[in-house]
Design a binder for these strands. Structure first.
Length: 563
RNA sequence: UGUCUUAUGGUGUAAUGGUAGCACUGCAGUUUCUGGAUCUGCCUGUCUAGGUUCGAAUCCUAGUAAGACAACCA
C-alpha cells in the first residue's frame, strides 16, 4: 500500500526556531541568519557543548544561514593551542563544518579603539584600586555599591593610563578599565563592570606578548558578535543576567539597524555525571580517571573512545530539547539513544567474557564445521560470515546452573538449549574441582537440528552464544559503569571524591572473541550477544586486543534474579 | 530580604488562546535461533488562588517554589 506522510505529525519547533522564523518573517537584519559557536580554548569539549553545537550549527543550516567557529580567547592565562586543535577535531567528528574560524584575539585592536572612544565619551575610566576594594565597593545584590574615587577623573588621565596598561610598565592587578554605568543598579553587572585587566605573566597563544591589557568577556563577546555580523547569539541560561550589559555595549557602538541578539537556553545536565570543566580537570589531574578521553568521561573524546557514534550523540540531543529552564536528564536516555543507533549498524559477534568449557560428548573428536551466521539480523544487507564449530567450546559461566530455578532457560542438566547458529544440545552433567567449582560441562548434540535444516524448527526456550576453543582469541574487556554513585553529583555538598563509584571500571582479562576481530580497526563497534555494545580501544596492539563496553544490553534475567 | 528567569506524569519535552500529545523509565502482553531487539497495550501530569475570555497549560494579578547574579573567568 502506498503511504503518504500527510498525517504524520510535523516535528514541533523549539522556542529558538520559533523566534528565528518570526525574525525571518519580520525581515529583521535583512533576513540574514548567522550564529557562532564560541568556545574558550581552555579545555576539552563535552556532551554539553555538543548540545550547543547542534543548536548553533543546526539553526544556521536549517534556515540557510551560516555558523562560524569563534575562539573566545581573551584570557591567555587559561588557554592553549592544544585545546584549539581538539575542539576543531571534535566539531568535525560531530559532522559539522564552520564557515570561518575566528578568534576574539583577532579583534584586540578594534576592541581597543572602541574602548578609547568610550573613555573619550566619558563612559569609561581607569580605576587604580585593588581587586578587593573594587569587590567591596560593588555591594551585594541587595545592597547598592559605592562609587570609586577614580570614577570622575579627567578623560585625558584615563586615556594616558589606558595606554600605559598595555606597555608592561604597570603591574598586573593594579589597574583596570571600567565602564561607567550605575553603581546602584539592581543588576550587579551594571555596577561599573571591568572591561580590561592586565595579564603580564602569560603569553597569549596567538598574539604572544603583544598585548598586556586584555578585554573581559562581557565587553569582548558582544562586540565580536557585532563585528562578525552574528544575528543570533545563543548561549546558556546563566548568561541571562548578562544580556542587559551585552545590549548596553552594543548600543554604545552600533551604527545601523543591524544588531545581534542574545538568547539563552538550558544547559545540559545528566544524572550521575559532572559536566563542569573544573571538576573534570580535577578528575584528570588527581588520576581518578586515565585522562580527558577516559571512556567514563562525558567529554566528546571520551564518548568517542567509549564507542558512542556521532549519530548516537545527535539522536540523544534530538530527544532532550531546548527550553528556558534547567533540568536534569536521565543518563538512561543517553544510553537508550546509543542502543537505538548502534542496534541498526553493529555487527553481532560471539564473545565469551567469563568462559567455561562445554564438551559435546557425541561430536567426533577432531571434526570441525563451518557454520554461517548473520552479521546483523536487523539488516540483511550486512551479510553473513562463517564460524567454526567443534567438540570443545567455550560458553559463559553464567549460562550454566547445576540446580536451576524454574525460569532458567539456559544450560542445566536435562534441559535442551540451542547453540546460536549451530545445534540444539542437551546438557548431561558437569565436572567440578575439589572446591566445587565447575570445570567442564557436558552435553550431547542432535545432528538433525543444525541451523537451517528441516528439523531445526524444534522449539527450545534458550539460545546461547559460544566459541570453539580452537577458534577463539583472548581479549581484555573493560566494563564501565557510572563514575558517580549519586544522582546529581553537581548538587551534592560533599567533596565529589566521596561520591565516586568505586566499581566504575571492571577489567576482564580472560575473555574470548572471534579471531577476525584482531584485524578490525580501533573504534569499530560491535554487539556482543547478550552482553552489550563494544568497540575496540585505540590502545589495542597485535599482542593484546582490548574492548570497551559502550553500553550494556538491558538484561531482564538479571532483574528476575534480583527479586 | 534586591533584580532577573522559570514552573506540564517518576524524568525529559510538545501543545504557537480551541481534543493535554510524544519519548525515556516502569508494568503487562506479542514475537524471536538469546530473555536483547521488534511490535502492542497500560500506569502516571498543567504549582496554588483569583481574573480576562464563548473557551486558558498558554494572557493578566498575587502567592509559592526552584535557579541565576556580588571573578581583574568565560
Amino acid at each position: 500500500m502506498e503511504t503518504t506522510n500527510v498525517d504524520a505529525p510535523k516535528k514541533s519547533l523549539n522556542f529558538i526556531e520559533l523566534m528565528v522564523e518570526q525574525d525571518l518573517k519580520e525581515g529583521r537584519n535583512d533576513g540574514r541568519i548567522q550564529t557562532r559557536f564560541p568556545p574558550e580554548p581552555n579545555g576539552y569539549l563535552h556532551i554539553g557543548h555538543a548540545k550547543a553545537i547542534c543548536l548553533d550549527f543546526g539553526i544556521a543550516k536549517k534556515y540557510g544561514g551560516i555558523c562560524n567557529l569563534r575562539f573566545d580567547d581573551t584570557n591567555p592565562a587559561k588557554e592553549d593551542v592544544e585545546y584549539v586543535d581538539s575542539i576543531m577535531e571534535d566539531i568535525k567528528w560531530l559532522g559539522y563544518e564552520w564557515k570561518n574560524v575566528y578568534y576574539a584575539s583577532d579583534y584586540f585592536q578594534q576592541l581597543w579603539d572602541l574602548a578609547v572612544q568610550l573613555i573619550k565619551d566619558g563612559k569609561a575610566y581607569i580605576d587604580e584600586q585593588s581587586a578587593e576594594t573594587i569587590a567591596k565597593q560593588k555591594g551585594s545584590p541587595t545592597v547598592p555599591g559605592i562609587e570609586s574615587p577614580y570614577r570622575n577623573r579627567p578623560v585625558e588621565e584615563s586615556l594616558a593610563l589606558f595606554e600605559k596598561m598595555n606597555t608592561g610598565e604597570i603591574a598586573e592587578g593594579t589597574m583596570v578599565l571600567r565602564a561607567k554605568i550605575d553603581m546602584s543598579s539592581s543588576n550587579m553587572h551594571f555596577r561599573d563592570p571591568i572591561m580590561y585587566r592586565i595579564i603580564t605573566d602569560h603569553p597569549h597563544h596567538r598574539t604572544g606578548w603583544t598585548w598586556k591589557a586584555y578585554p573581559m568577556y562581557d565587553y569582548a563577546h558582544g562586540q565580536s558578535d557585532y563585528f562578525e555580523g552574528v544575528t543570533h547569539s545563543l548561549c546558556t541560561l546563566e548568561f541571562v543576567v548578562h544580556r542587559p550589559l551585552y545590549d548596553w555595549f552594543i548600543d554604545q557602538f552600533k551604527d545601523s539597524d543591524y544588531r545581534p541578539r542574545q538568547t539563552e537556553f538550558n544547559r545540559l545536565n545528566i544524572t550521575y555525571t559532572v559536566m563542569s570543566k573544573r571538576k573534570m580537570l580535577q578528575l584528570v589531574e588527581e588520576g581518578l580517571v586515565t585522562g580527558w578521553d577516559d571512556p567514563r568521561m562525558p567529554t566528546l573524546c571520551g564518548l568517542r573512545r567509549r564507542g558512542y557514534s556521532p549519530d548516537a550523540i545527535h539522536n540523544f540531543i534530538d530527544k532532550i530539547g531546548y527550553t528556558k529552564y534547567d533540568g536534569i536528564n536521565d543518563i538512561g536516555l543517553l544510553e537508550h539513544a546509543a542502543r537505538e543507533t548502534l542496534n541498526k549498524t553493529a555487527t553481532r559477534v560471539n564473545a565469551v567474557l567469563n568462559p567455561v568449557k562445554l564438551i559435546v560428548t557425541n561430536y567426533p573428536e577432531g571434526q570441525v564445521e563451518k557454520l554461517p551466521t548473520e552479521n546483523n539480523p536487523e539488516d540483511p544487507s550486512a551479510g553473513s560470515r562463517e564460524i567454526l564449530f567443534s567438540r570443545e567450546l567455550y560458553i559463559e559461566r553464567e549460562d550454566f546452573m547445576e540446580e536451576a530455578p524454574k525460569k532458567f532457560f539456559r544450560m542445566t542438566p536435562g534441559q535442551e538449549v540451542r547453540l546460536k547458529s549451530a545445534y540444539i544440545v542437551k546438557c548431561t552433567g558437569c565436572k567440578k574441582d575439589a572446591e566445587g567449582n565447575i570445570e567442564e560441562i557436558y552435553c550431547e548434540y542432535d545432528p538433525l537440528t543444525k541451523s537451517g535444516m528441516p528439523d531445526s524448527g524444534r522449539k527450545v526456550k534458550g539460545t546461547l552464544h559460544w566459541l570453539s576453543t580452537q577458534n577463539a582469541v583472548q581479549a581484555e574487556v573493560r566494563l564501565y559503569d557510572r563514575l558517580f554513585n549519586v544522582e546529581n553529583p553537581s548538587a551534592d555538598e560533599r567533596d565529589f571524591r566521596d561520591l565516586l563509584n568505586p566499581d566504575s571500571l571492571k577489567v576482564l582479562t580472560n575473555c574470548f572473541v572471534e579471531p577476525w576481530l584482531k584485524n578490525e580497526k580501533p573504534l569499530s563497534g560491535f554487539q556482543f550477544q547478550r552482553t552489550g555494545y563494544f568497540n575496540i580501544d585505540p590502545d589495542t596492539t597485535p599482542e593484546k586486543l582490548i574492548f570497551n563496553r559502550t553500553v550494556s544490553l538491558k538484561d531482564s534475567w538479571a532483574k528476575e534474579q534480583n527479586r
